[in-house]
Design a protein around this nucleic acid. Structure first.
Lengths: 155, 155
DNA sequence: TGGTTTCTCTACTAATTTAGTGGAGTTAAT
DNA sequence: ATTAACTCCACTAAATTAGTAGAGAAACCA
C-alpha cells in the first residue's frame, strides 16, 4: 500500500502539473484543494524540492512550481522518493535493495522470483505514466461525468 | 511491501506443498527449516487452518498438512488471507475495499485509475502462480545452482 | 525601514501497525 | 497416565507512519 505521505505527494504533484506555467502555487491552496494537512504537506513539498523536482519562491506571490515539464515526471519517481514500496520484498527493490533477513538463499528463493515479475509489471505502468498523463486523465474523467450527470438529470 | 507475516505464510505453504502427500509436518520442523520464530508461526498456521487452507492433527505423529492439492492454492489467496496488500490503495482493493479518506471523488481520481491497472497486472501474476509452481521452481533453481557450483569448482 | 507573506528547518509527539512472546488448555496416541 | 502436539487468548515491544509546534529566514511591498 502507498503511504498517505506518498499519496499526498502524488496528489500535490498532479495539482502542480495542472497549474504548470501559471506561476507558483501556495502550500495552503494545494492543502485546501486536496484535503491534505497543511503542515504535513509543507514537509512533503520541501522534500520534493530538495530532490530537485520542485522549485519555490518565498514572500508575496511566492509558492511552489514544477521545475521540469510535467510529462517528464513519472509516478515511479515520486513514489520512490517518498520511500514508497514498489517491490513486494526488499530483495527485489531496484533502489532500496536489502536482503530478506530470514531468507537462506536469495538465488533460489521462489518468492523472490515472483516478486521480480510483479515488480517489473508494476514498473511497466508506473514508470511510463507521467503526472501530466494523470492530470489529463482526471480532466477527461471529470468532463465525462459532468455529461453523464446532466443527461441523467435531463431525463 | 509484504509483511513478515505474509512472507512467513508463503514460505510455510511452499514447504507444505513440497511435503504434500507425505503426512503431517511439525510446526517446529517448518520453523527451523525456514528460520521463522516458532510461536509466530503457530499463529500463522492456525489462521491458515481456520481459513480452510490447512488441516492439522494433534498428538504424536501430528502436525499440519495441506487440505487441497498444492496446484489449486494461489499466492494471491495466501497474501489476501494475511491481509497483505495487493492493491496500492484501499479504494481499488477487491477484497478489502475502503474509500480513501481524503479523496474527493473516487470516480475521477487519477491515482485510482493507475492503481487499478497495477492491481490487475499484479494479480495476473499472483493469482496464476500456485504454491506448487513455486516449490517446483525452487527445486529447479537449486538443481541449477548445484551444477553451476560444481562446474566452477571443477575448473 | 518595517511589516507581511510565504517557505524552511528542526524537533517533537501521537497513533497505528507489525512482530513477537507467554502460558494455560485441549486433543490424540501409546 | 504420560507425552506429543496443536489451540487460544492476552499481552508487550519495536518500528513505522502521521501529524504538530514553533522559531527562523527570505522576498516583497509600502
Amino acid at each position: 500500500m502507498l503511504s498517505k505521505k506518498t499519496k499526498y505527494a502524488l496528489k500535490a504533484m498532479i495539482v502542480l502539473a495542472r497549474n504548470h506555467g501559471k506561476g507558483p502555487m501556495l502550500i495552503s491552496t494545494i492543502s485546501e484543494q486536496e484535503n491534505i494537512p497543511k503542515k504535513f504537506l509543507e514537509n512533503i513539498l520541501l522534500e520534493l524540492k530538495n530532490a530537485g523536482m520542485l522549485a519555490s519562491k518565498k514572500g508575496a506571490g511566492g509558492g511552489y512550481y514544477l521545475l521540469k515539464p510535467p510529462d517528464t515526471i513519472m509516478l515511479s519517481d515520486i513514489i520512490r522518493l517518498m520511500g514508497g514500496p514498489i517491490a513486494l520484498v526488499p530483495c527485489v527493490s531496484l533502489n532500496f535493495y536489502e536482503p530478506c533477513e530470514e531468507c537462506k538463499d536469495e538465488l533460489t528463493c521462489g518468492i523472490r522470483q515472483v516478486a521480480l515479475r510483479v515488480r517489473d509489471a508494476s514498473l511497466e505502468i508506473l514508470a511510463k505514466t507521467s503526472i501530466k498523463d494523470l492530470a489529463e486523465k482526471e480532466d477527461s474523467l471529470i468532463a465525462m461525468h459532468k455529461k453523464t450527470r446532466q443527461k441523467s438529470h435531463a431525463k
